[in-house]
């Protein structure tokens, strides 16, 4: 994509089909039936990790449909396959069998380069440990995916500042991660996840390292994104207080949705 095209795409959201407003999801609808197709769908997905002779079935024929504007929370005990599910849905990992459909397209068979492009343009990731680059300021961290997508430095900086304002970090744009609290770092990470106007945000324990106040702020921010901007958010969490903020919650045990 050319720089001009990238700039247009990021600024007007033309790489997505989202419309702000009410989620088009059907709580509990895992088969994806109905008139609105799911934005993201896992079909009979199995993922097995092999450690020597031992096989761990992290995902076991799991099927799941996620609809536009949903805030889906995923709960379950450690080792139940939550993070693996997130990685498979986010094109970071490929399942051993089954399909993952993003906007109806099977992404599991795409080459790594194409999946990287999808992650860059359609998916935003948020991690428990924030993973901001310590040598960059908040603004520069947010600009990183935009520059990779081909935006000019100037446009990336403008949009970066606007995103930081949106997450309440406007006055901290020039601070480095070491000068920010955990909550501020996570809000910066959310701004980074929003950088290329993604359809979907996948958050792995985004409040895991935050105190109650900051955790509340972060989850409210994610809710606002779904409600106001129509972004689909999937949050993996252990925290029932976070889970209850979702529009739908699923529970996982042994790689299956129960």
């Amino acid at each position: 994509m050319t720089r001009e095209a990238a700039e247009k795409s990021v600024s007007d959201g033309s790489n997505t089909k989202r419309t702000a407003g009410t989620p088009t999801s059907r709580p509990g609808g895992e088969s994806g039936g109905g008139t609105t197709p799911p934005v993201l769908e896992a079909v009979e997905v199995t993922k097995i990790y092999r450690m020597g002779p031992t096989e761990i079935r992290a995902l076991d024929s799991l099927s799941l449909s996620i609809y536009k504007g949903e805030l889906l929370t995923v709960m379950g005990p450690s080792g139940s396959g939550k993070t693996t599910l997130l990685n498979v849905l986010g094109c970071l990992d490929v399942p051993d069998s089954g399909k993952v459909l993003l906007d109806g397209e099977d992404v599991t068979r795409l080459p790594e380069k194409a999946r990287t492009r999808i992650r860059l343009r359609k998916i935003g990731f948020i991690f428990q440990q924030f993973y901001l680059i310590p040598t960059l300021t908040a603004l520069e961290n947010v600009m990183l995916p935009m520059l990779e997508a081909g935006l000019s430095r100037k446009r990336a900086a403008e949009r970066g500042r606007s995103l930081l304002e949106e997450v309440g970090m406007g006055d901290r744009a020039d601070h480095r991660p070491s000068q920010m609290s955990g909550g501020e770092q996570q809000r910066t990470a959310i701004a980074r996840a929003l950088a290329n106007n993604p359809e979907i945000i996948l958050a792995d324990e985004p409040t895991g390292e935050l105190d109650t106040t900051n955790a509340g702020m972060v989850i409210d921010l994610l809710r606002r994104l779904t409600a106001e901007e129509g972004i689909t958010v999937v949050v993996v969490t252990h925290d029932p207080r976070v889970a209850e903020k979702g529009t739908r919650t699923i529970n996982m045990v042994d790689g299956r949705v129960v």
């Binding site: 380069k113 990287t116 992650r119 860059l120 998916i123 935003g124 993973y131 995916p145 990779e148």
Partner: peptide, 16 residues
Amino acid sequence: RGEIAMMRAIGISGKT
């Protein structure tokens, strides 16, 4: 490694 994995996750190419 963690930081590199994050960069890969958010779509930064191996080339970058």
